[in-house]
Amino acid sequence: MKTLRIAAITALAFSPLALASTAQAADGDATVSVLHGVPGATVDVYANGKALLTNFKPGTLTDPVMLPAGDYDLKVVAAGAGADGKAVTEAKGVAVPAGANITVVAHLTADGKPILTPYVNDTSMVPAGQARLTVRHDAAAPAVDVRANGTAALKGLTNPNEAKAVVPAGTIKADVTLAGTSTVVIGPANLDLKEGTNTIVYAWGSAADKNLKLAVQTVSGMNSAPGGVNAGSGGQAAAQAAASDTGRYVAIAGVAALAGGVVLFGRRKATNR
């Protein structure tokens, strides 16, 4: 249901793009990014037997590309091993729904085995002045808490799950602790949560190998307009407009009185004569 709504929104949003480029079924496309979160292995990634990424290094996040919606067989092999090389990890029939914004992450499971996890990025609108923060646990590590400015914001997150929140835009100081403790395992790092974006933070690496790290992805375009512009509270401008009307009447009366006075003066003169 939610996916459908996201799909509908993104499809609408993309329609200008669809017109601009080849009008070829862009409605049926999905936006896909790939993150490499397996420490130590430079790899090639194949989609349905075709090279999607080569010489892909750990910690790298691709720019998003549009791919036709459908099911994809994804295979990660050691760099140069070829489409038929031994899989570091693979995932068959990964659903890429039309209009969705997806990040596929190659990462370690909680117990340290490589795996591919596709995530659907939440591109629903956020209120003006706000940003969405998404945190994904893609590390060989136990449950963690994510602290924002020293306070636990997202608690008990486990691999490969995500947690998200809509928060005021701005820079936060974030770190990751073992769940329920103040033992910092990653960070602190300053995160610039830009207004109208979904800032997605990935915790990846391995606790045992002491190479836990953060990767950050920003998906934009979720901004909405403020509720209005309330740009006057004195009423003086309105009062002045009204006063200038009153002033006109006063002037009219004055002119009339003056005219009357002139007539009167003239008449008196005539009478006296």
């Binding site: 290094k57 790290k213 920003t218 998906v219 375009g221």
Partner: peptide, 20 residues
């Protein structure tokens, strides 16, 4: 819609790189 291409955006690769 006030939506620019949602997600047309940017994964700043620099962020990822600096992480790695």
């Amino acid at each position: 819609l006030p939506t620019p291409p949602a997600g047309s955006s940017g994964a700043p690769p620099s962020g990822a790189r600096s992480a790695s």
